[in-house]
Write a protein that binds this DNA or RNA. Structure first.
Lengths: 365, 365
DNA sequence: CACAAGTGGGTAAGCGCTTTCTACTCGGGG
DNA sequence: CCCCGAGTAGAAAGCGCTTACCCACTTGTG
């Protein structure tokens, strides 16, 4: 009784009387076994030639290479991963590719990944915590060798615990993870200095003569938003501004969020002299709202954002913001996850946030 | 020699009496075999419960689920793919995540992919044809069930043939591919009507009274650029404008490209009344160049772009462009690649390009 | 009450690779 | 002349999982 093992090509040994080149083509990808058969060597030898794991003598080596070429053989990466017990894929979880904040970070990650000849699994959560969790699972399932999660963390305790639990499982299985924005998940972390950046921004704005501020903040539970707001308050206090009458409006962390909050602000009555949108995307929305309401920036109101995203370059008036090296942050996170030895304790890299004053914030007379 | 291999649970094969604290934990992920052992059932049963491939009776079913939960089992997706002979990953090849044109398309693709509970491999070529080829190989290697390639195709014959060859191999192995921008690769295609869009744009601009134009075009070999230029020329001719003195400058297909071409244009002497940048990213660069040279848009020169990318919303003056439903194009490509039966002949979907006149192009007196 | 059809469990044969182990051929030193 | 590596090929045992196949056991039916 012939077992399939003895017929490496996967074709029937019996039916295939003329086992030569005219053999019936199986459908689907070409197998290593077919290459080996074509070259007249064993499976092991073919494997060794193609993956270069051991030297193979010249008569054989050339034949295998030729056969692979001729048959257009492409190794099955999944099978290789299973056999080797190690994959060469990296997971990247972001909120949304369409948001410049995330695409910049993704760009930085991609560069690092490409340098190492790995591939990346991209998943976007659209700010849904359940999807986030689900994706971490998926990534674990695919045994990604490194996992990078970026996107503002929340104060949602239940979710954070679940996530930490999941990441622990991932780490236990030998995976490396890096989170951008928060370092309380037991993984490596790249942490932008949101609080001190916002503090510095408040100081600069006060020095321009502003005293009456409004903040367009993100959802209450968002850490990034909370930290920046906190820093901003501290900065104001330090400059002697009474924080009691600081207007704080909470809304979505998006362009639309910024737009509608600004509209609210306009409708609410006398504008403050300066508005701080907690991130640039919201600032752009606010700018649009101001423009369509006939409120001039910076003549009627000054406007500042945070992140210094790329599209800011083309906006008039140029927007004051707090610069974060987004691509570099992505790259850094990738490095942490990729270049650290598995058993090392997790590292946290702080990223400086630098105030950049531009035309959207004017000096008060 | 490790005996642990022969006993997947890492515990005694018989009763679990010796288990407990002394159990030797293997490192790495939890295996299905461990779950099965923990639940006291066979590997097959555990597999059936977890993947739901066959009904399993209640005493066992519950035990397996509990064991999986307790041990935090996560199936090895790679091994599943190998065993099942089918993967659930989709490949997406773009030029650059940082370019809004591509990130929009990617957004559309992602949505479709997520709806189907698949994952995506993202690769960016940075406009390097060799990398493109390489990535197609990689994707083949990973046996992605669908592959979406987007990014302007070139006239480079050698490369196109290699690519077509590679894609043929991919298709032969049962893969589905869709290309955005060109339909000559034997795959499904989503083809924006670049030529007719540019033609319509030319007509509208002429109707605004413009006669003297300059085109900031991309690299000569780029099909997208070539088609748009051709359409623009046709449109001008149709409106009775002599194409002979149309200024055409070739440069990079990027913001910097647009910026330096515009600078060249300014330096070269008297400006035409209207400049057509072959895509929006270049238009934004041109706008910046004009601004810093003190050339007012649209007072001194009108400016139009193509694609209608998202960041255009925040630019002043609002930019005239030719709208392409980018996200939808990505979604459409994903659908073609994912919902078509393998043996069907490849389809080409044409995408209408709609002129949108805005403030950057003025009517001449 | 024998018999076909239907359930649900285990055994083991795969999936397409890698890698260990074994076997064999050579060239030299004792 | 034999024995000992060195070097290289092949057989086969994995990798972690799915599933065909088999069998013991219900049920329902004539």
């Amino acid at each position: 009784m012939t077992t399939a093992r003895e017929d490496p090509t996967g074709r029937g040994a019996e039916q295939d009387r003329a086992a030569g080149p005219t053999a019936v083509r199986r459908s689907g990808p070409v197998l290593l076994a077919e290459v080996a058969a074509h070259a007249g060597v064993s499976l092991a030898t073919a494997s060794r030639v193609l993956s270069g794991s051991r030297s193979v003598g010249e008569p054989h080596r050339g034949r295998v290479l030729a056969a692979a070429q001729e048959l257009r053989y492409t190794p099955n990466a999944q099978a290789q991963a299973v056999a080797r017990g190690a994959s060469n894929v990296v997971g990247l979880i972001i909120h949304d590719v369409l948001d410049p904040y995330f695409s910049s970070i993704a760009g930085g990650v991609m560069r690092q990944v490409e340098e190492r000849e790995l591939v990346v699994f991209l998943a976007s959560t659209h700010s849904d915590v359940d999807r986030e969790l689900e994706f971490v699972q998926t990534m674990r399932s695919h045994r990604v060798r490194a996992l990078i999660i970026c996107g503002s963390r929340t104060t949602d305790r239940v979710h954070n615990e679940r996530l930490a639990h999941e990441l622990e499982g991932y780490a236990a299985a030998g995976g490396q993870a890096a989170v951008i924005s928060q370092d309380r998940l037991g993984t490596h972390a790249v942490v932008p200095q949101n609080r001190s950046g916002a503090r510095a921004l408040a100081r600069e704005l006060c020095r321009l003569g502003h005293r009456r501020f409004a903040v367009l903040a993100g959802p209450r539970g968002l850490l990034t938003s909370r930290d920046r707001l906190m820093g901003f308050r501290e900065g104001l206090t330090a400059e002697g501004v009474d924080v009691a009458d600081l207007q704080v409006l909470h809304g979505e962390f998006t362009r639309e969020g910024g737009e509608s909050l600004a509209a609210e602000l306009i409708a609410a009555g006398p504008l403050p002299t300066c508005v701080f949108a907690i991130n640039d995307v919201m600032a752009l929305g606010a700018l649009a709202a101001f423009r369509s309401a006939g409120v001039r920036v910076p003549e009627d109101v000054s406007l500042a954002g945070f992140d210094d995203i790329a599209p800011l370059r083309d906006v008039v008036p140029s927007l004051t913001s707090v610069h974060l090296p987004l691509e570099e942050m992505g790259a850094r996170a990738a490095q942490l996850a990729l270049d650290t030895e598995p058993q090392t304790t997790s590292q946290a890299v702080k990223v400086h946030a630098e105030v950049v004053l531009r035309d959207s914030t004017r000096r008060l007379a």
